[in-house]
Design a protein around this nucleic acid. Sequence first.
RNA 1: GUGGGUGUAGCUCAGCUGGCAGAGCACCGGGUUGUGAUCCCGGGUGUCGCGGGUUCAAGUCCCGUCACUCACCCCA
Length: 429
Amino acid sequence: MAGTTEQQRFAAPKGTYDVLPPDSGRWLAVRELLLWPARRAGYGYTEAPIFEDTALFQRGMGEATEVVSKEMYTFTDKGDRSITLRPEGTAGVVRLAIEHGLQNGQLPAKLWYAGPMFRYERPQAGRYRQFQQVGVEALGVDDPALDAEVVALGSRAFGALGLSKVELLLTSLGDPQCRPAYVARLQEFLQGLPLPDEDTRRRVALNPLRVLDDKRPEVLEMLVGAPVLTDHLCDDCRAHYDAVREYLHELGIAWKEAPTLVRGLDYYRRTAFEWQHSGLGAQSAVGGGGRYDGLSEAIGGPPLPGVGWALGMERILLALDAESTDERPVGPPVPPRCDVYVVALGAAAKKKAVVIVDALRAERLNVDMSYGDRGLKGSMKGADRSGAHTALVLGDRDLAEGVVQVKDLKSGEQRSVPLESLVEELVHR
RNA sequence: GUGGGUGUAGCUCAGCUGGCAGAGCACCGGGUUGUGAUCCCGGGUGUCGCGGGUUCAAGUCCCGUCACUCACCCCA
């Protein structure tokens, strides 16, 4: 490098990606569709900062979690504050709720959000360092019917996309009443096993539930007789879990009991769930969530129970690809970027054309025109590529007659329309 | 952090035992000076990831390096 003036060629940083047209149209349509069930259920949009005080995540998600202990983008700002790019959305939303006193208003407070999250991990299919989630949180009420609503909103969102290979996994993680006793029992069981490596043995002490989530067949074999949390729930948690399942049953939502399901974040208690897609390879979770009744207190707030989920945009898009075939694409239709395409021939016509384009856009039509000095043939090609159903051709000859040629690009039919009735004609076609 | 795979045009990729840098799609122009999608003709748009080595000669062989990717781990 010394002595050279060679320019570095930049690329998107490791684990990040760019979204651009035409794919970005699909991207927006998917996100929109995912959130409609929640919006209809009264969830309102929130926007929290992309970075927060590091301690918010440490206390909220738990120091022992993988995410906090090794995956956070943490830096010191110029005011000597420790700042972290949010690795998930819930802690920030709960902080926002506390800061604005939402617990004093009508409850539950129902909120949704969408945006990038950041985790420092080795990238892989469906796993990025900057990734997009959409999420909902329902705060202030510990009614199991609300758990069921939240779960249903997610399942309905997947249904709306047309995904059929999404499976809902459900369990209860208990609460401080019953979980400690169970954890002790589990640790006792695990300590009696010839676990294969140091990491796993350390996990027995630190985060024993996570051991149950191991995917190695030899470990799974050892775990066969392990005590299961859902067999050791206290009466309150048992009643809550039963009620959630009853509501889901009434709603006609299918789930699979997953007593070894473990969430990555410590704040969850009672209801926990995850949606998995079978066509994705290693990263099969397309969404997940649960109830987090202790989170608010953990970050210094008032008692504020809550339940919510987050869905991973990238994995959902992969799932749509996995279920799509050439004949039958799965997912929302992408709105055309253009309805009407205007082609002007000559300087005088172009002057008129830009005005027509503007007027049609004011009528809420999607309108584009041919720019640069392409010939008529090239411009018509542009019209075709734009996806427009109608092309307008305007040359000096037409200008002299006060008309525009209106061509239907599907049928190829073309007719003259007087300039003054053009807008009317196109708006009410 | 640990392993495997892959780096050639905007995209998907071919390029054999080393011998002129290629195809399809996309894009641009023309066939038609006022008509697209079809058809025909033309155009290559390139740091063969990068650096070194072997050789008369390297996209091809060797070494190094970087990037991407898949998997472990973990999760959305």
